[in-house]
Amino acid sequence: MAGGVDAKRTVLLTMLVSGALAGLVGMPQLLGSSFSYGLDFTAGLGLTGIGVALLGRNSPVGIALAALLFAFLERSSSSLQFIDVPRQIYVIMQGSIVLSVVVAYEAVRRIGVAQAERAVRLASDGTAA
């Protein structure tokens, strides 16, 4: 209850909102193009969604951009077949993008921390001398 925030209640609420949002996933397909329910709806989208959220660093704007990127990769992959590359390679591209981007985030963060530490050390050296 630190700071007056009810942790349990907040978790419950966020899970409800999260589930409600996820429940909307099939809507564009259902109300926009197929107009009837099929068992093949949202195949694997939930897991891809986790990847998208992570790629967007859990910020709403970033997630929108990441979703655009993933959708672009998937849709444009069919043009790869004109040059005799199997289009399935787009999944590999998605996976390597997520992996390399998070590794890059981490590397950048570490460099930032190291620089800040060096700055502090220099400053303290200056006062000591």
Partner: peptide, 15 residues
């Protein structure tokens, strides 16, 4: 990392 590897594994097998 795990999610990325799931994507990579599935994609690699399809490809």
């Amino acid at each position: 990392s795990g999610v990325a590897i799931n994507l990579l594994g599935a994609g690699a097998a399809q490809y």
